[in-house]
Design a protein around this nucleic acid. Structure first.
Lengths: 101, 101
DNA sequence: CATAAACATGAAGACTTATTCATGTGATAG
DNA sequence: CTATCACATGAATAAGTCTTCATGTTTATG
C-alpha cells in the first residue's frame, strides 16, 4: 500500500470547487433542473416559473454562463439558454436521489 | 404535458445548496477524498497529507461536521473523523470522472 | 425613427466565507 | 500535578457572494 494522498489533482480540485460553488444555490439548482426538462429556455420563461426578478435571474444566468454550465443562443429578441454538458445533471440527480439532502 | 416546474422541493433545494456549498472547496473536497480512501482519520493525519495549518483544517472540519458531512469519535488524545454518508462520495466520483472539471 | 420587449450590466449595501493568530480545552505521560 | 500533545474556538480582517435598483443594449414593431 502506498502512502495516503489526495487522488484528485490540484487543478481539478480547484475547477471542481469553482463549478460546485456555482451549483450550490437554490435558484441555480432550479435552473439546472428546468433546463434538464426542457433543453432550452428563454429568460422570460424561466422568470415565470421561478418568480424572481429579471435582473436577479440574469445575474445568476451570467454567473452560470461564465462558469461554463450553460450557454446561450440568440433567437430574435429572446436568448435561449441550454446546458453545455449533461454531466452536471448527474449532480442534481445525485442530490435528488439522496435522502440525506 | 403538464406545465413546467422545478421538480425538487424548496426545502430540499435549500438543504442541497447548503451542503453543496460546503463541498465546494478544494480543501474540503480533498478531505472527503481522503476519508473515502481511509474510512477514519485524525486531524494530525490529515494535516500531514494536506499540509495546511492545524487551525484552518480544524475550522474546515467543524464546518463539515456542522453540515452533517462528517462525524467524529474521540479515541484517547485523538479525534477520528469519518464520513457520515458515503453518498457524498458519489459527488466526488462524479467530479473525478467528469472531464469538464 | 420612436417605442417597447427582452435581456444584460454596474454600482452599492448587506451578508457570508476564508484565513490567520492567539488562546482555550481535554487527555495522557512523566 | 504540570507539561505536552491533539484539537477546538474566537476575534479580526480580507475577500467573495447575494440582491436590489437604476440604467444600458439589442432586436423587432408600428
Amino acid at each position: 500500500m502506498g502512502t495516503l494522498h489526495v487522488r484528485v489533482e490540484q487543478k481539478k480540485l480547484e475547477r471542481a470547487a469553482y463549478v460546485l460553488k456555482c451549483v450550490a444555490h437554490p435558484v441555480r439548482i432550479s435552473i439546472i433542473d428546468l433546463l434538464e426538462q426542457q433543453q432550452r429556455l428563454t429568460v422570460t420563461e424561466m422568470q415565470h416559473v421561478l418568480a424572481i426578478e429579471q435582473s436577479l435571474l440574469s445575474h445568476h444566468l451570467t454567473n452560470m454562463r461564465d462558469k461554463g454550465i450553460v450557454d446561450t443562443q440568440r433567437v430574435g429578441k429572446n436568448i435561449h439558454y441550454y446546458l453545455t454538458d449533461t454531466t452536471i445533471t448527474n449532480i442534481i440527480n445525485c442530490i435528488n436521489g439522496c435522502n440525506r439532502f
